[in-house]
């Protein structure tokens, strides 16, 4: 019984939220890693691209809600997502056409690309704040819980319940579908193989007749779709705040580097590792240990490694440790 309660407590406060957060980070990191693999630069505008996608989705969601169209228990945002994806892909392809392509032709230094992506970030931040404003927006609707805290307790008779929010389920399911599709695409299709070849060795790929502009276009389409989905899911799960997307860049970059730059599997792995470390390190284990220990005993302190204020610091510490110990990442990234 005690063990079950301890598990429920841990699941409710650590495992479930960290899984959802990890899925969001994994999607974000996948986008960054694909651009890293194909265009070979750290795209600082990826956070704002996520924000842009989420913004379009929110606007369409509002339109649908006004007309009374919904998905029943599922969030309306899922219905609006395809439009958001289209808009984000258009945005990504347009920035490539008008900004990045020029430097690609010149074979500019990766740092130049990174600086230019900062400029893109500024412009996108401006557009987003002009269109939707700097305030928070909550746009989740439908059923709130798959199973609520109280229902779970009634069902099992334990002291502790596990609440699973609908947005968390949606996040994980959508991520599973997207990641499965992406890996199928990269492994099985001709274009996917071309992309992997291009990412492995640019010159060799060119020699075998792969069209670089096509590869780059597909990379941006994938990155844009992933960004929109990741941003929307993050906004659904928490709330949509424009400024958060600059902060979330850090865990996303950490996940990318931890997994190995340019490695899609690594990005997913990295996303979950970063999310679980963030949540575990800032969780107070006092009650968890109290359940496991002898009756009536509880630890003195909160048994919390770091206060929740330093959530973002965790991803940075992971980043530094990876850079020091294994700069290539878990799955050896090719760029170093």
């Amino acid at each position: 019984m005690e063990i079950a309660n301890a598990f429920a407590l841990l699941a409710n406060f650590v495992i479930v939220p960290a899984t959802a957060y990890g899925a969001q980070l994994a999607l974000g990191a996948l986008g960054v890693t694909i651009i890293f693999g194909i265009l070979r630069f750290a795209n600082f505008s990826h956070g704002e691209l996520m924000s842009f996608g989420a913004m379009v989705t929110i606007l369409v969601t509002w339109l649908l809600q006004m007309n009374g169209i919904g998905l029943g228990p599922l969030p309306t945002a899922l219905l609006a997502l395809p439009v958001g994806i289209l808009a984000t892909v258009a945005m990504a392809v347009l920035t490539d056409r008008f900004v990045f392509r020029f430097y690609r032709k010149k074979r500019a230094n990766p740092i130049v690309f990174a600086i230019v992506s900062v400029g893109v970030m500024f412009m996108m931040a401006g557009i987003i704040r002009i269109v939707i404003g700097p305030d928070d927006h909550s746009f989740a609707d439908g059923e709130r819980f798959l199973i609520s805290y109280g229902d779970f307790k009634k069902l099992t008779g334990w002291d502790q319940g596990i609440a699973i929010k609908q947005t968390q389920v949606v996040t994980v399911v959508v991520t599973l579908i997207v990641v499965a599709f992406l890996f199928w695409f990269l492994q099985k299709t001709r274009s996917g193989k071309a992309m992997r070849a291009y990412s492995d060795d640019e010159d060799l790929a060119l020699l075998s007749g792969i069209n670089p502009e096509r590869v780059v276009l597909i990379a941006w389409i994938i990155a844009g779709s992933l960004a929109c989905i990741a941003g929307t899911l993050y906004g659904l799960d928490k709330t949509y705040k424009p400024f958060i997307f600059l902060q979330i860049l850090l865990p996303i970059f950490a996940a990318t580097i931890l997994g190995g730059i340019g490695q899609p599997v690594g990005a997913v792995l990295g996303g979950f590792i970063v999310a679980f470390s963030e949540v575990t390190v800032t969780y107070a284990f006092k009650r968890f240990l109290a359940y496991l220990g002898p009756d009536g005993w509880a630890p003195d302190g909160l048994v919390q490694l770091l206060s929740t204020d330093y959530k973002f610091a965790v991803s940075f510490v992971i980043l530094v440790v990876v850079l020091l110990v294994r700069p290539t990442g878990i799955i050896r990234g090719k760029v170093i």
Partner: peptide, 24 residues
């Protein structure tokens, strides 16, 4: 000491991180 000597974009990401921590 930690971040120099690595790839240029790593330095960018690492310094972005450290400044967030200092502010935190």
């Amino acid at each position: 000491k930690i971040a120099l000597g690595l790839r240029a974009d790593y330095l960018a990401i690492a310094t972005l991180g450290i400044s967030e921590i200092i502010i935190a």
